[in-house]
Nucleic acid binder design. Structure first.
Lengths: 142, 142
DNA sequence: CTAAGTGCAAAATGTTTGCATACTT
DNA sequence: AAGTATGCAAACATTTTGCACTTAG
């Protein structure tokens, strides 16, 4: 459902370029806005938000909402996930907030399982596993 | 880490009772507030938010943030999830927004896998799978 | 020339907070 | 009595929207 074609604008390029330089890093809309402003490539916030949304739709960025009343985070995933058959899953630690990237074949199986047994076509890019990371687990046990 | 004891107040009971009547249903803070107001058991919104937060901390409710700029949803899980070993997973359709509840042993395995192979202790209650549901998949293929 | 994108400021929304009062233990 | 909770209104922060203008296809 292409809601309409996407124009290639200067602003889109600038934003995308910023993300490409930081693969796997979480960046908020405000980060983008501030960074570009300080770099003399100012873009209106509305545009930042609108482009971010589009980039997510286009599958170039991922959006993570950790907590209400906290800005959403965006992360570049670009072509990597599309090209290689290898899907990257994300785990977010509820304690320390760390984001872990996993690339694991066994996890891919859940995608297949969900599809074949539940008719649900998983989007691994948008799915985040919440839980507690190794380090924080150990801390808890002390 | 009990940040302090929790008093048993009238408001807490009212809110909890409302959720107990709707297990597995997603309810927003506004829903709670409006429902109680219409029922003549008005509770201030601040209190609603504060109690909701506490109930989540106490493990009685679950909080889901689907989308920024959309209210967070709360769901009663009460003792059920704790008692039965059966964990309920959630799938959110990116197209129609539908939320699907799954209770599936195979999905539980991913929890074990994440823990044993990646040292990550999954919290199934806070994890939401994003993707496209059966119905919307079919629509796409037309 | 039309559709899409931009920028600004203003609005909207969901959530949080300050503070005086009231309730629990 | 001390520690929490409540309620109201005001404050907040992030995100969205209206509109006139510019740019891409």
């Amino acid at each position: 459902m292409p809601a309409g074609s996407t124009y290639k604008t200067k602003q889109r390029d600038i934003i995308l370029k910023y993300f490409e330089k930081k693969p796997g890093v979480h960046i908020t809309a405000a980060d983008v806005y501030e960074h570009l402003k300080s770099k003399g490539e100012s873009i209106g916030q509305a545009t930042v938000y609108r482009q971010l949304e589009k980039l997510v739709d286009d599958g170039l960025l991922n959006k993570y909402i950790m907590d209400a009343s906290a800005p959403a985070c965006f992360e570049y995933i670009g072509m990597s996930a599309h090209k290689s058959g290898k899907t990257c899953f994300h785990c977010k630690c509820e304690k320390c907030g760390k984001l872990i990237h996993l690339q694991c074949d066994e996890l891919n199986e859940i995608g297949h399982h969900l599809l074949s047994d539940h008719g649900f076509k998983l989007n691994p890019l948008r799915t985040v596993f919440y839980g507690v990371c190794e380090e924080c687990c150990e801390k808890d046990e002390l």
